[in-house]
Design a protein around this nucleic acid. Structure first.
Lengths: 333, 333
DNA sequence: CTGAAAGCGCTTACAG
DNA sequence: CTGAAAGCGCTTACAG
């Protein structure tokens, strides 16, 4: 039995005070007598009054919505990362009485995002990935609207939050080199993603630090789909490598599938490690040595940074979060 | 260089007409001279005017947002279904100039959803799953707000869109029975989910139709996590079943993992089928016989049904979508 | 076909 | 400490 929704006017009339006063009692802004405030607050509780977010929004030129931009590319949309991230943002935003609107974009089509901004439906944006050539980022910069990237950007004027992929990859690679891997292969996806560039950088640093040289004929980048990976794995078996390092969980899943098909045993025949861990690897025949990041934490930090920015507070230009190196069965000697 | 945002007032002043007229030219409602309309439309194009969705919303008591409710339970949040579904909704909503806000709820805590509704941030809701005892559903019914469920509900007054899981499961089960499975086990999760009840119903129907009796000692339901499944699989190996039917992709993933650990070969030693297919099974040693549903289509139908309902149009009480039975290696004789 | 005016439900200088 | 009034940027009866 939904009765007519209460407005601030109703309350003012009922209590014989002005709506200005009611508004102040609710928002806590401006001077107001303790008694009056209590009276209003009590009435509100009793009658279950909830202010209209939209009216409040119009008056304050705010929406109390933030946008989470995630890739709509079909192959990527299934990655568990974004879902966990979404969960983290949603919970954090909720606490600040903000809601999150999602927007799907591809590398070449950001029209959904543009529409959202032009319609002024959000106060700020979280970019769920960063690309070398990032249309979304460019667009947002040109609009001068608050946004933060989940992932690094080369543009120092962009507020960014990222896991320290470079250090993490360096560390894991070093561990592998010290385990006396002689013929290690690196297999990765789209190098247009900044995160992959950082992973490669970390890999290189490890070799440098270890004093070994990378065999560039064992580095396969920009693999797009399972087919690509299958072919590469065939070659790697041929070349008799002792370890395959995968740049992310999707690639690693493909590698594992292919190795299984070829009846290659892990870790006996070939060892495997991944620069990113997720549920995609959960089901693998051997538990995979990998890097572990805290997606929920990262989401929370992104969200809070954005909300601060919306409130015109000072925010750090770049926040780097930690990681864990997890050594497991798949790289055992 | 973002200049002051244009408003309907600016346009009216500039063109020496009233804002009423401008509004009409834009919305296309009400009589208006072709010439005037063209003049306005041209001006709008040239100056890239975009109406404020929030002001429009306040005037029309609408938000142009719909909400997608997804489970925030940690174990479930990773299911690919919701992500694909989200993608479908987002695209469909976008076409109608609607945006989608997400809300995470658990079986016992729907506070995020309640807040969203009370703040009046959305015009309608899509419920991403249905439970036997569904707090979200109850709440929405009590609020008399437009909503549709993605999944079946026992309450006939609820607008629902679902895949025909019952028929699908019946059909797949029949196929298996005809393949002369003698000792078939059924393994499933939370029976509080309506979808699981329908799956079980379909399974039963198939036995009835085939004229065989279900061995209830081979039916394991309400399994919650991987541990539960592992134990069950141990028993099933002990009992020497010839086929394991999994109610969903998550359960099936667990079953496959356990069988692999025990070095049970598929399909030679035990056959496996799943009532739901997803990327979670992609990586399995044998391609799994399963049911296939079109998540994107379902999302689109849900979304369009909801939008019609919001516009006070007549909508079907229940829409049932199709499925495909895919027979693959995992059940080969 | 077009416009003046009231209204959507809040907030916020400005006065007092 | 409190209120009258204008304003946020649209829409929509009601007149003409």
């Amino acid at each position: 039995m939904e009765t007519k929704r209460l407005t601030i006017d109703d309350i003012a009339r009922e209590l014989n005070i002005s709506k200005t006063t009611v508004s102040r009692a609710i928002s806590g802004k401006g001077r107001i007598g303790q008694e009056t405030r209590d009276k209003v607050l009590r009435y509100i509780k009793e009658n279950n009054y909830k202010p209209s977010a939209i009216a409040k929004g119009l008056a304050q030129s705010r929406t109390f919505n933030i946008c989470f931009v995630m890739p709509g590319d079909y192959s990527i949309v299934d990655l568990p990362f974004y879902q966990g991230f979404l969960w983290g943002i949603s919970n954090t935003a909720s606490k600040a009485d903000y809601d999150v609107i999602i927007s799907m974009v591809t590398e070449k089509d950001i029209s959904q995002l543009v529409r959202l901004i032009e319609n002024q439906k959000v106060d700020g944006i979280i970019l769920g990935r960063t690309l070398e050539e990032d249309k979304a980022e460019e667009y947002l910069l040109s609009k001068e609207i608050p946004f933060v990237t989940a992932g690094s950007s080369k543009d120092a004027s962009v507020i960014q939050v990222d896991n320290d992929h470079r250090s993490a990859c360096r560390e894991l690679t070093l561990v592998l080199l010290r385990k006396k891997m002689k013929k290690m292969a690196l297999v990765g996806g789209n190098m247009g993603y900044i995160v992959n560039q950082n992973r490669l950088a970390g890999y290189r640093e490890a070799y440098l630090e270890f004093g070994a040289a990378i065999d560039s004929s064992l580095v396969y980048l920009n693999l797009v789909n399972e087919n690509d990976v299958d072919k590469v794995v065939d070659e790697l078996i041929e070349k008799d490598v002792d370890c395959i390092v995968c740049m992310d969980d999707y690639i690693c899943g493909c590698v594992l599938g292919k190795l299984r098909k070829e009846h290659v045993r892990i870790p006996e025949d070939i060892k495997v490690a991944s620069f990113y861990n997720s549920i995609l690897l959960e089901n693998s025949q051997s538990v995979i040595t990998s890097l572990q990041f805290n997606v929920t934490e990262m989401a929370a930090v992104c969200c809070n940074t954005l909300l601060s920015q919306i409130d015109k507070k000072e925010v750090p230009g770049k926040t780097l979060l930690g990681y864990e190196v997890i050594i497991r069965e798949s790289t055992q000697a």
